[in-house]
């Protein structure tokens, strides 16, 4: 698609979108009827998607190919009002497909986006930025983080989405556009995990934060499961470790670490599936092996590790009840 057509389409869509925004805000989304397209129509829809302005195509691909929420899309692409735009695009495409009183359903949209995305790539085979990428050491290290399975059923799309975020931040940093968007990076890139067959090394990457003001004694563990008693405290400056034990010799350990430098934690992960999730606005990892549950996360300038002969729910409950 030529640049001129792209610019014209963008301007037309912008004007139309502003008008449509008012109607969207007044409409009742519960009354929307969705329509499933045939394979033939999905193929046509894919071509129409290819004619949309770049921003709109990106919003669609992030939503339907990378499963990003409109909020995530706005943060990653620095767009505004992706949620309304998504609805607007869906309505526009429905009209373009001859559907007047209903919308194309999400499955059809998803299939069309997946058909359209490879075509999008063809135009950019000669992008110089991809010819000889020079990865920094820290970027290469951060790629290791992907060597983790996720609890999300759609792992393929989730990983692809993260790859997109990764590369977006990296490439943008070269052009100094997104180099200071540390919020996204903080959430995603604050651990490196090196996996070995029997164990894994978790390296905290949270040392950039202002840890000077952190006082480990200000953190309170407000929930410990019944039967466990504190029997040992290890205090080593920037590290405090609480050991609990039950009458039947079950153990529970809570570690608080101020990451002044890179802290390497070697943990048993044999035959374990390490699940990744967002906990207290940070990346967290949980896994189980040999009857012990492990949980790691970062919060308020401190790395927290909990291990114990408890199920995941109990371990997470302990974590949720750590406050300051």
């Amino acid at each position: 698609m030529s640049r001129t057509i792209d610019i014209i389409m963008k301007d037309v869509c912008e004007l139309s979108f502003q008008d449509e925004l008012h109607k969207i805000s007044e409409s009742d989304t519960n009354d929307i009827v969705y329509e499933t397209l045939s394979k033939e129509h999905i193929s046509i829809l894919a071509k129409k998607i290819g004619l949309l302005p770049f921003e709109y195509r990106s919003i669609l691909f992030f939503r339907y190919c990378f499963r990003s929420t409109p909020y995530e899309t706005d943060k990653i692409l620095k767009t505004e009002n992706s949620k309304s735009k998504l609805y607007y695009i869906q309505k526009m495409l429905s009209n373009l497909m001859g559907i007047q009183n209903s919308l194309i359903d999400n499955n059809s949209m998803g299939e069309a986006c997946k058909l359209s995305l490879p075509d999008e790539m063809k135009d950019y085979d000669n992008i110089e930025a991809l010819k000889k990428p020079v990865y920094t050491k820290s970027f290469r290290k951060k790629l290791k983080e992907f060597n983790i399975s996720q609890s999300n059923n759609n792992i393929y799309l989730s990983i692809a989405k993260k790859a997109a975020i990764f590369i977006l931040i990296f490439i943008m940093s070269l052009s100094t556009v997104l180099v200071f968007n540390t919020e996204a990076r903080t959430k995603l890139f604050n651990w490196i995990i090196e996996k070995f067959p029997k164990y894994s090394i978790f390296t905290s990457q949270n040392a950039n934060e202002d840890t000077e003001q952190v006082d480990l004694s200000s953190f309170k563990i407000k929930y410990i499961p019944a039967g466990f008693e504190l029997y040992n405290i290890h205090e080593m400056g920037n590290i405090v470790i609480y050991n609990y034990i039950s009458k039947n010799n079950y153990i529970l350990t809570v570690k608080l670490l101020i990451p002044l430098g890179e802290i390497k934690s070697y943990y048993d992960t044999e035959n374990a599936v390490i699940e990744e999730f967002i906990f207290k606005e940070s990346q967290a990892y949980i896994w189980q092996t040999d009857g012990i549950t492990y949980l790691l996360w970062h919060w308020s300038g401190v790395d927290f590790h909990i291990t114990g002969n408890l199920n995941k729910d109990e371990i997470i409950k302990i974590a949720e009840n750590i406050s300051k």
């Binding site: 792209d6 770049f54 990106s58 691909f61 190919c65 990378f66 692409l77 995305l117 490879p118 999008e120 790539m121 135009d123 950019y124 992008i127 930025a129 991809l130 790629l143 290791k144 992907f146 060597n147 792992i155 393929y156 799309l157 990983i159 692809a160 989405k161 790859a163 997109a164 590369i167 977006l168 490439i171 943008m172 052009s175 556009v177 090196e194 996996k195 070995f196």
Partner: peptide
């Protein structure tokens, strides 16, 4: 920006199409 964005999408899909096991097979 368009090129950069497209590069992101293209790379993400390229990575995804190869598969998790292949791309991220850095387990030692």
């Amino acid at each position: 920006l368009k090129k950069i964005g497209a590069a992101v999408l293209a790379t993400a899909v390229m990575l995804g199409s190869i598969g998790i096991g292949d791309v991220y097979a850095i387990e030692q």
